[in-house]
Design a protein around this nucleic acid. Structure first.
Lengths: 214, 214, 214, 214
DNA sequence: ACTTAAACGAGACGGTACGTCGAGTCTTACC
DNA sequence: GGTAAGACTCGACGTACCGTCTCGTTTAAGT
């Protein structure tokens, strides 16, 4: 989990860990990842630098854990409020794949436009590009779990005959997830609900003319 | 071009500029973008630090210009060899959109797997994520021109009736370009010719079952 | 006694105390006083840091006690071997002051040239220069007792008419002890038996020409 | 001069050098040598740490140069004020060795009791005890030149028949210089004019009873 | 012999300073 | 006036120890 393995411990200070997460997330938003400094995190958290170096190897590793923890917290909060239906842990299945995908993709668009998540997520993506270890962890812990939700939903749709039998769900989902991520990361175009809808439609029905429509 | 505007001059040393480009590209491959320093570029180029600071604002800006120059050189070289048919400046139009796209996408896959381009391109993408100015320049100078080639080819196909009339080409191209970029950047899956083919097929015909095929 | 007073106890671990002394003396010789650290002493002694902090206030205090203990051990060992005549606890009185002083001073020169005592003794002297408390303790426990032996011997000589009646023994002894210590500490000249002899002669008879010699 | 040799230079900032000397001397008096920090010197001098590390190897080396510079300044100031009679550069020769030595030794006692010189001088002595390189430089640059003044004066006295012909001046001077330094450094007794006088008398005439006095 | 409170080993903690690296600015000498 | 060289101030790096503070675990005194 991005931690240095050696220092065993139950002796670890929970208070410090939380303070470090909070400081890291606050600072990355305030000053940006490039100017984020382990020294500043330590100072803001009221913690010695060594306490950070003891448990993490880099500012990227700290931020990744902080962000994962943020997700866990959100999930836990949602779980408490909503009984069993944990938010984000499942893509709805109303029987209408197109509607369901549009619904989720619009929510994703909103999330990408939320300043709270933008800075840390973008920072982790950027770090992951340059740092294969952290990139792998980023993908494994953060990206892939979310993509697997689409895999599952596409498989359900395939079983229901709404998706062609030969289609590879892992590739199919990239038709909408890839463009969305690209636009967001590269700022290469506006991220709107309409854009999300179009992606779903194009992905489902292709851009070639359809022989006929029922 | 990412240069500081003020000290413009014809007195600029062409020799230094070239040496800086070469040093930047060599170093980013050798030590990685994170450990790339202006001091090292200057030393390797046999140039004073001030000469770099005079013309660029950051290592990212240097690298972007270096990479653009690399592209220009390649284009110029190709132009000389091949008369009018400049490589990469046009997507072939054989009349068969699917075949043409697969051809180009396979070439792109090969390029992404070429170590020579990987380090600098990846570095610029990462820097662009965090640095909006450089990101915008990256998109404008590097990304968008390539995407526009797809726009043009899709429009040709639409005019030929191979693409549905209502389709927005700028979004359509993202169906294959987005996933490809995502997999490359995030290392979230293998980049193969087969993958490229599938992307084209899914994009053209959708993942929903087709009513019937002529 | 260099110990922090509060945590008094008979419960103190003798084993730890000895291990700390040994570690301190070994380390000061190996790495030098400047690089001597409490953490290293604790590690070498197989002892928790707190055990050192519980009984001493600084590395200097530890070393002083360790060195005093070393002296006690030597004295005890000598006492066992030699019956009542404890080595170093008395300056011989053969009736010939000059001979007795030369004998003792030559022995002192040999001791100063012994690497075993050099490092810790030098360290304590240096620490004492900067730290008045420890310096006072150093003088009181280590230096003054040795000087008092000279005081006693000079008084004996004065009673025997070998020293002028008006002479202050406490100052007189400094005529040879001061130069010797100075040369040793400052490395400002060679420490030889001949040098020791000359000091005694000059101190006894002065450097001015003698009116006549019996 | 305690400087690291590599970085050549006429380019060196005189302003920084002076500021560093002033800061080092002020701080060693204020907080003591043990708590003297290169970081604090740099901060006080308004200088980057690197500028100190560029020219010196340790805080001791800085302080030694600072102290030597202090002496140079004093000498230069004295030279300007007093024409040819530079202070401290010569021991007076009135023809009466005893009187001259007492005069100089009393002045030395006063100097040792001057807080301005105490802290840095003591610090350098302590550092010299532990650090042979710096100790050698301390002796060569600071201690030995002062002792040589005594050598010269004793030789003059010997030529004038006031010192026995066989006496080694280099050892003779230690009879008073050694005890004085020892008392000062070790704080092992009071430093008074009377003590200085006695040292001179004992050294000149010895502590043994004189056969008779003319 | 059993209980119990202290000293103990271990080592995480908030800090300070280390000595190094590079950023970006400035000065000097050269062309 | 642009340039190579490199000294400068500044800030952060990652490391080493400081002295304090828990944690169990001995261990020896007093019952």
């Amino acid at each position: 989990m991005a931690q240095k393995t050696p220092p065993d411990s139950t002796r670890r200070s929970e208070r410090s860990r939380r303070a470090i997460y909070d400081a890291a997330l606050a600072l990355v938003t305030e000053v940006g990842y490039a100017k984020l400094t382990i020294e500043a995190i330590a100072a803001r958290a009221g913690v010695g630098k060594q306490t950070i170096y003891r448990w993490w190897t880099s500012k990227g590793a700290v931020l990744l854990d902080a962000f994962l923890d943020l997700g866990d917290q959100a999930a836990r909060a949602a779980g408490e409020n909503a009984g069993q239906a944990e938010i984000q842990s499942e893509i709805p299945n109303s029987g209408d794949l197109e509607a369901d995908l549009k619904y989720v993709l619009r929510a994703t668009v909103d999330e990408f436009n939320d300043a709270k998540y933008d800075a840390p997520y973008r920072a982790l993506a950027a770090e992951g590009l340059l740092n294969p270890e952290l990139g792998a962890e980023f993908v494994e812990k953060l990206l892939e779990p979310q993509l697997q939700l689409y895999v599952k939903r596409v498989e359900q749709a395939r079983d229901a005959g709404q998706v062609a039998p030969g289609v590879d769900p892992r590739i199919a989902l990239e038709l909408w997830a890839g463009p969305l991520a690209q636009r967001w990361l590269m700022r290469s175009g506006p991220l709107t609900h309409d854009y999300a809808d179009k992606l779903v439609e194009y992905a489902l029905y292709g851009i070639a003319p359809r022989p006929e429509t029922s």
